[in-house]
């Protein structure tokens, strides 16, 4: 994060409080949508979508990624790609019938 003045820090504090309220609200929403009568796939994508929004708020504002240097952004982008490969391995295995007797 770049060098901060007192004024910008006080501005950040207001943002932190707003993000905190948003995270609390989204937690309630997460629990509420779990009671919806939907299929597992729909429930899964709903839960992951809300968690991703919450995670983005934490990353962007609490971890200051929104104003972070490019070196970190590129490193995290590379991590995200490898993470997604890791997550898709089970799905590839599941849809691939090779070797199944």
């Amino acid at each position: 994060m770049s060098k901060e003045t007192d004024h910008s820090i006080e501005h950040h504090i207001q943002t932190y409080i707003r993000v905190f309220i948003a995270l609390g609200f989204l937690t309630v929403v997460t629990v509420a949508v779990s009671y919806l009568e939907v299929s597992f796939i729909e429930a899964f994508f709903l839960a992951i979508a809300i968690a991703t929004i919450k995670g983005s708020l934490v990353l962007g504002f609490f971890m200051h990624l929104i104003s972070e240097k490019k070196a970190i952004i590129w490193m995290l982008a590379a991590t995200l790609v490898t993470f997604l490969i890791l997550m898709f391995i089970p799905l590839i295995w599941h849809t691939d019938s090779t070797g199944i007797y």
Binding site: T30, V31, S34, F40, A43, F44, A47, A51, F62, M63
Partner: peptide, 16 residues
């Protein structure tokens, strides 16, 4: 980051 991990653990383990 520890908070971030929990944000994903909570729905996956408890709500799905």
């Amino acid at each position: 980051f520890v908070d971030l991990v929990w944000i994903f653990l909570f729905p996956i383990l408890y709500l799905l």
